[in-house]
Design a protein around this nucleic acid. Structure first.
Lengths: 231, 231
DNA sequence: GTCTATAGTGTGATAGAC
DNA sequence: GTCTATCACACTATAGAC
């Protein structure tokens, strides 16, 4: 970078400023969404928070939905990181247990981000989709990438003959995911599931999905397995 | 009604007209929501559809959220009816199977109504809540009423010693509900679960939750049990 | 080239004339 | 009971100042 002329240096500075502003926009957006939810993220409020005019935002993001997409991507990356923290667990069933707990923890820890990622109709993001026809698929791909980590574990289970051969591992992964998502989603909607705490529901679900895999007895009860932070 | 004076008759007519208009508003709203989703239900569009001014709507509903609440109640009543159609099944496990399938069918058949009922943040309805402090709980009560039908079956299972005694039936009910809700919710959000069809996920989940209850072998597979319309 | 200011259209909700 | 007119706010898109 030393042999760079003044002209190039100037454009380089510009690029950096541009990116700094974009990051700043995302930063404020992230905070607003985390606190008040995506519905409360208006371009005016956002512009005022970063001390620019509303129109300035559109130089960095095509639309409000485009900001949503960026935040979604961030969320998926964070969730994926939470999963990757457990990939070192050798036993696939134990790994799935850890990941499942991590998933629910993630959702309950950042409800509004989770809602934006998984509970908002796709149309919210749609507006930002490039002219390219696969614009809508991108958000889905992020989810699919983290899902594959779960599916991998089921593939291992099957390879170890701990899963019936006639069952698709990916179906198991999606089934478990749907189960976990249901727990988080109902919890997030307030009065829906007042009785049972989420951690207990996760225990029950994991028992239900893994009793035969573990091959052991403690079905519908796992007081000894629940020593994790999910409690 | 024969001994009614002209005065009373007139107010009676008024009341009927009032109710007819309210029903008409709900009718059109129901249709719009069913076709385009609640987000597409604007007071202006609605007013034009019933040939009244927007302000007229506020004589019958306190707010847009109040209409949402009414539609939610309708939906919960319909779901409950779908459940009640299976209460005659004597075996609690079989009954739960039928209800579970009915639940997912309901959600997939009317996605937008389901979304309004279970996937919309409570705030949407909140605006209409009476001054009474339990306003927010009402929508939840409808859900709780149908949930109790599921819980009842688990109570029966337990009474028949087909459920471990240390497990709360209501927790099971909520766990199963969360599982089913997850399946529907992920399916409704489009690209989320492209691989496995919903019916297969329901099969897997029911297997997972009921394998020990049924006490039989066909765990993680039930090709013989899937002859229902859910397929 | 970058951003401000503004125009134009939409929304929910309300006040006041009739 | 119904309407017109209006408020306050959201969004997009763009003309024109710097």
């Amino acid at each position: 970078m030393l042999g760079m002329g003044p002209q190039a240096r100037r454009t380089e500075q510009r690029r950096e400023q541009r990116e700094a502003l974009r990051e700043r926009i995302l930063e404020v957006s992230r905070e607003i969404v985390k606190r008040e939810g995506f519905a409360a993220l208006s371009m005016r409020k956002l512009a005022e928070a970063i001390d620019y005019s509303p129109a300035a935002l559109y130089l960095h993001f095509k639309s409000r939905g485009d900001i949503a997409l960026a935040l979604r991507r961030e969320g998926h990356a964070n969730l994926r990181d939470a999963f990757l923290a457990h990939t070192s667990i050798a036993d696939p069933a134990a790994r799935l247990n850890a990941m499942a707990r991590a998933y629910v923890e993630f959702g309950l820890a950042e409800p509004e981000t989770y809602r934006l990622m998984f509970m908002e109709p796709v149309a919210v993001t749609e507006a930002s989709a490039d002219v390219s026809p696969n614009g809508a698929g991108l958000a889905g791909q992020s989810g699919a990438a983290t899902l594959s980590l779960i599916a991998d574990a089921f593939v291992e289970l099957r390879a170890a003959n701990r899963l019936p051969p006639h069952i698709a591992p990916v179906a198991c992964a999606e089934g478990l995911w749907a189960n976990l998502h249901g727990i988080v989603a109902l919890k997030l909607n307030g009065a829906a599931l007042p009785e049972t705490p989420a951690a207990r529901l996760v225990e029950l679900s994991l028992d239900a999905w893994f009793a035969p895999v573990n091959g052991t007895e403690p079905r519908f009860n796992s007081p000894d397995r629940s020593d994790t932070s999910t409690r």
